[in-house]
Design a protein around this nucleic acid. Sequence first.
DNA 1: TCTGGGGTCCTAGGACCC
DNA 2: TCTGGGGTCCTAGGACCC
Length: 398
Amino acid sequence: MPPRLLHVDLDAFFVEVCRQRHPELRDVELLVVGGRRESRGVVQSASYAARKFGVRAGMPIAQAARLCPDATFFKGSFPHYRDASRAVRAVLARHSPVVAMASLDEGYLDFTGTEALHPVSLLPVAAALRGEIKRETGLDSSVGIGPNRMIAKLASDYAKPRGICEVRAGWERGFVAGLELRALPGIGPRTAEKLRTLGLTEVAQVQAMAEADLARLVGDYARELKWRAEGNGTTALHAERLQRSVSRETTLGTDATDPAYLDALLVRFVSLVAADLREHGLVARTVVLKLRHADFTTVTRRRTLPAATDLDQELLAPARALFGPAFEEARRRRQGVRLIGVAATGLGEAAPADLFEPPARTRLRELTSAVDKVRERFGFDAVQPARHLTLPQRDRRE
DNA sequence: TCTGGGGTCCTAGGACCC
DNA sequence: TCTGGGGTCCTAGGACCC
């Protein structure tokens, strides 16, 4: 039995969630979500009316403002997106025991082996699903059905907005034949540009070539490219795996040259990352510092610790040790700092306390869990390192 | 035209070990 | 005077996705 996968993709998700939460936006046709008009950000999502002006996700806000000067620009809020996403997931979970959210606004469902229940077509299932999502969350969605993840996703792209598209087993190759290579998952701007210089822009071109000939152009990459272009994809919807990293970063309103200011941000980000780790029962072995210079050069510096930890102090010390030389490097290059960020990687599950732990560390852990309890009741900013207080209010919001 | 923030995975070289 | 080979860990950067 061929796999049967269903891909649900919410239409203009970020825009619609903002409308629900902010009634004053409800009748704003030209709505762009991602940041305020003057911010140094990119478009997260645009209403379909704004897309008619050429506004696209990923585009700099400044460019969107030129294309669509009458648009309203709105920042949006992650917790609102997260809550809406959970509500959608709950609807999906009622229809299939195997649900994998690929991001906040899309998820896969596995209907493999349901031929007895749904012979021939899954169109009725998709229609019911769309209706239920709309009734229970107020959100519109599109659904793609296919024998692998890639085809299901491309089918939902094709169906957008508010549509359903089913590609039955055997029709994969023909379905992708009309697409540009750039539309295939895994082919981003860089790869598409490289392929273009080789004269390759269409899926059909790759389909027409033998893998050996393709290999003369793109080397080892030929195998994967050919596989995709023939309409193949993976079918496994793996259960949630352990998260690989936790991070916080920000692009500053204006480039910074004051190390004390950057240090205060570093302290804040480390404490947010550490709190995240503890909330999820994780510990990290590696700390990564990220700086982006004014000229957009991005550097990362990392340090692996002797033992994994979820304590602010044990993550902050290496983060600061990395920051010093990295900041000096920026200064030598006469570059202000555009972005600063911290990540924790090398994650594992937190283990029970070590019997031979030094007493000082035990006290630190107890203090930390007391702080977590206060924050649970009164919010993260109820307890802050003194360093935070040197930050302007605008930088102290989560 | 001036480029977010949260992630994932891959590659490649050097250190170290046996 | 000529210096193995394989495995694993670590670091830095790049590409991609939504």
